[in-house]
Simulated assay, not measured.
Amino acid sequence: MSAATEAFLAMLAAERGAAINTLAAYRRDLAGAEEAIGDLAIAPRDAVAGLSREWATLAPATVARKASALRQFFGFAIGEGWRRDDPSGVLPSPRTRRPLPKVLSHDAIATLFARAELEAASDEPRAVRQLALIELLYGSGLRASELVALPLHAVPRDAPFLTVTGKGGQTRLVPVGDRALEALARWVAVRPSLPASRYLFRSRGGTHLTRIRLFQIIKALAARADLDPSAISPHVLRHAFATHLLEGGADLRVLQTLLGHADIATTQIYTHVEPARLVALVNSRHPLAQPSLATRATSD
């Protein structure tokens, strides 16, 4: 990669606090563009426009992500004085639709937890750890990356809250229910003390459990519970947390805080996953749905 793109990535890390995975995604997108048209700091406008042909077979969401990375780079390059022009206007701007999240039914959640609790009854450390993991995914709505990287000192003592470091290094307080607190206490009690590690869910090497390993644990548990593994993942459990809270009447702004979303628009997608509930809400709460009003309207 060119020195300019390396400087841009360094800025994202230092000034914006971009997460490791975010930086890796930017690096891949910028490296791919430079492989196609050369140093982005000096690439001519026509060459930048040619990227549309390079991306012709990609999904709209992928094209949108790549174009966004380049637009941000070009803005940075102009600010640094490396470019006088901004070729962002020739980049494609495909329309993308955010897919609706997969939703687990209450019955599926009950089945999954019943299996996890049955296995944890043995007090075998891996089974107890498994229960603690799914309790925090569904009970607190943590992202997979947030969950696996929890430090040991995050275990609540005086108050039922976790201090979680989310995207961009932002921290937030996440409430922990009684069930999850009990599961955490069980895990801490049987958690091996060696090798020493600062992480709550550590790997054999002393670092933290990987997201891939967490993914595998959840899929295997689903299979043993006779549920479709393709329909269940750590992120699906986070979606279930959000959806079921909304079903119970949670406020969207509160949910935004719990999930750690920077933009309320990201949280609003959950308002589209329960159309039946919305119809029932209109039928039960709208003034014209009340018999007294309908009767008055007829008599008038």
Rank of each mutant, 00 (worst) to 15 (best):
T165Q: 05
A33E: 05
T267A: 08
P151G: 10
P192W: 05
A33T: 03
P291A: 15
L70R: 08
L252H: 02
V254Y: 02
R129Y: 06
Q290C: 07
E80G: 04
A297K: 06
P156M: 08
G17M: 15
R211K: 02
E182C: 02
H286L: 04
V63T: 10
P275N: 11
G139D: 03
A77G: 10
I232N: 01
L150N: 12
S193R: 14
W82N: 08
R65K: 11
A154Y: 01
R16M: 09
H106Q: 13
A297L: 14
R198E: 13
L133M: 09
I269D: 00
V254E: 06
S52D: 10
A289D: 05
T111G: 01
Y270W: 11
A7Y: 03
A121L: 07
A19T: 08
L181P: 09
T257F: 01
E117Y: 06
R191E: 07
P125V: 13
N21S: 13
D263W: 09
Q268V: 12
G139W: 03
A69R: 02
G89Q: 11
L133Q: 04
G32M: 02
A154S: 14
G249L: 10
D300I: 10
K66E: 04
L70D: 01
R143L: 06
L112S: 00
G141V: 05
P101F: 10
Q268P: 11
D158R: 11
H235F: 08
P156E: 13
V254D: 01
I269R: 03
A225S: 02
E124P: 08
R213D: 07
R202Q: 13
T266Q: 08
A159F: 06
V174M: 05
T57W: 06
H286Q: 02
A159Q: 12
V176K: 11
L23D: 00
L91T: 11
L246S: 05
D251W: 06
V236N: 00
L293F: 11
R179A: 15
